[in-house]
């Protein structure tokens, strides 16, 4: 009896390993090894054409003086600081609006807001490049109607970044709104009825009931959108390629440029390692800050 039990256990363990094997191999080869390899390559001078030369931490020293890199990191932060709070507030706001509509109007509104999500990043770039056209673009035509001069948008060093942020918000607003809306729907109606007796309705009810109960969702959205904003690439690559005058060259774009255009693989790997540390520390800080109140 006991031996049969052992045999069963052995079969169970073997099946488990068999079930895990494809992912263990895949994650090792395509995530874990690259992670370690990134660090190793970052200690070398390597342009893909000639053999690697081990140079220790020289790439990191070079990076510390690389003004272009730190400016790119700064632009990433700028992107994040504008993008994350805007997206957060807008999706929360429209989720609250949807939540107080009748079911039919809510469904229509939701569909309209979600539709851009069905569009890919490059398609969104194409549409908005057309809308932003500095000469006859649709947006400039509307601005003319209200008496504002035509703007350069993507062609202006001061407007390009914000113009791109608008596109990325436009794509992601519906989805994030849906996440908020889904968790708003899970708040029991009794909570609001109880609050009503205490005289808390509308904004007050939102402030004291809805928002506190959305904590987990809020943290989730904040962390995910922050990490996402540190990796923004597609729209910028298509719309401005980092220009004009590097004004939209964010961290990932600079890494891409170093790796696949200049073929500075070692240096670009060092940049990736630092980008990883930045993202990692930032998400830790965010989790810590938001978990504090408990």
């Amino acid at each position: 009896m006991k031996r049969r039990g052992n045999r069963k256990k052995r079969i169970e363990a073997l099946t488990a390993y068999g079930f895990l094997l494809p992912n263990l191999v895949g994650l090792t080869v395509f995530v874990f090894v690259p992670m370690v390899y990134a660090f190793y390559v970052s200690l070398n001078d390597w342009n893909l054409l000639t053999p690697k030369v081990f140079i220790g931490f020289d790439n990191y020293i070079q990076m510390s003086h690389d003004k272009d890199w730190w400016q790119a990191v700064g632009r990433t932060f700028k992107f994040t600081i504008i993008y994350v709070p805007s997206l957060f507030c807008l999706s929360l706001f429209f989720a609250a609006v949807c939540n107080s509509l009748s079911q039919r109007v809510e469904n229509v509104t939701r569909t309209l807001f979600l539709l851009p999500f069905a569009i890919t990043s490059v398609i969104s770039a194409a549409i908005w490049m057309f809308l932003y056209d500095p000469k006859d673009g649709i947006i400039n035509q509307f601005l003319n109607l209200v008496g504002i001069d035509a703007q350069q948008f993507l062609g202006s060093t001061s407007q390009a970044m914000i113009s791109i942020i608008v596109v990325v918000i436009w794509i992601n607003l519906g989805y994030n709104m849906m996440i908020f809306l889904a968790s708003m729907k899970e708040i029991p109606g009794e909570f609001y009825e109880a609050a009503k007796i205490d005289g808390a309705t509308g904004w007050k009810a939102f402030q004291h009931i809805t928002f506190p109960l959305l904590r987990e969702t809020s943290v989730f959205i904040l962390v995910v959108t922050t990490i996402g904003s540190f990796q923004v690439f597609d729209q910028i690559m298509v719309m401005t390629k980092g220009g004009p005058a590097n004004s939209t060259q964010v961290g990932v774009l600079y890494i891409y440029h170093q790796a696949f255009e200049v073929l500075n693989m070692g240096y670009a790997s060092a940049l990736s390692v630092v980008l990883f540390l930045i993202i990692f520390i930032l998400s830790l800080v965010q989790l810590r800050l938001t978990a504090k109140k408990d």
Partner: peptide, 11 residues
């Protein structure tokens, strides 16, 4: 925890 952009070069 490893974002794609961080490992794109070694990958």
């Amino acid at each position: 925890m490893v974002p794609f952009t961080v490992i794109m070069i070694p990958l």
